[in-house]
Simulated assay, not measured.
Amino acid sequence: MRDEPPAPDDTDPDRDEQHGSLRPTSVAALAGWAVVGLVCGWAVHPISERLGTVAPVISWLQPLTLWLLAAILGFTAWATWRSVQVRQERLLAHQAVNRLVLARASAIVAALVAGGYVGYALSWLGESAEMADDRVLRSLLAAGGAVAAVVAALLLERACRVRGESPDA
């Protein structure tokens, strides 16, 4: 008995039936995850106060890590675009899929993280607590890095597109 690959899922909303390709990540999906992150990030401060614990302190490591992620994704997007569009080289199938999965996952998670940091920063506005201003500043810098990572991930997703594809593909 041979193991055969499963039949394609015809209910996948991201699947384009004509070309067998995926649609780009939607702005609505990214906005939805950002809103979820915003609510969760905002809730961290009041919940930690109710539990009698110290609210998390945002160090410089979090914003720097997110800006580094954005730089790595941006470089990967540039290198991929240059290979596919300028040199007109074909990516191996597994390379293209890996980069596309990396781009999608990074865009969604970075949108969630950006919303979380914005929500956390908003929860500290107007507070007179020690380090409240530091938490707001560092949270907003981390959110900026996450937004940059979203943009870089979307550019990587776009770089995986081959010539001749429609803009919706």
Rank of each mutant, 00 (worst) to 15 (best):
D3Q: 13
E4T: 04
P6M: 12
D10K: 08
T11F: 14
D12V: 12
P13T: 13
P13H: 05
P13D: 04
P13M: 11
Q18I: 09
Q18D: 14
Q18V: 06
Q18H: 13
H19Y: 11
H19F: 12
L22D: 14
T25N: 11
T25Y: 06
S26T: 15
S26Q: 05
A29Y: 12
L30E: 10
L30A: 11
W33G: 00
W33Q: 08
G37R: 04
C40D: 05
C40L: 15
G41F: 09
G41Q: 03
G41P: 08
G41A: 01
W42M: 10
V44T: 09
H45F: 14
P46Q: 09
S48L: 08
E49Y: 06
R50P: 06
R50Y: 02
P56S: 03
P56L: 09
I58D: 01
S59A: 12
S59N: 09
Q62R: 07
Q62A: 03
L66P: 02
W67H: 06
W67E: 00
L68W: 08
I72D: 00
L73E: 06
G74L: 03
W81S: 15
W81H: 15
R82P: 01
S83M: 11
S83T: 07
V84E: 04
V84Q: 04
E89S: 13
E89H: 15
E89N: 14
R90S: 14
L91W: 00
A93V: 09
A96T: 02
L100A: 01
V101E: 00
I108R: 13
A110H: 07
A110L: 03
L112E: 01
V113D: 00
G116C: 09
Y117G: 03
G119S: 07
Y120F: 15
Y120C: 10
A121E: 10
L122A: 14
L122D: 04
L122T: 07
W124L: 01
W124P: 02
L125I: 15
G126H: 05
G126D: 03
G126M: 05
G126W: 00
E127F: 06
S128P: 02
S128K: 11
S128L: 09
E130I: 11
M131I: 10
A132T: 03
D133Q: 15
D133E: 14
R135V: 10
V136G: 01
L137E: 13
S139F: 02
L141S: 06
L141M: 12
G144L: 06
G144R: 07
G144I: 05
G144M: 04
A146S: 14
A146P: 11
V150R: 11
V150G: 03
V151N: 09
V151Y: 12
V151K: 02
A152R: 05
A152F: 00
L154S: 06
L154C: 13
L155H: 08
L156N: 03
R158Y: 07
A159D: 06
V162S: 02
R163K: 12
G164P: 07
E165W: 13
S166E: 13
S166Q: 13
D168E: 11
A169D: 12
A169L: 12
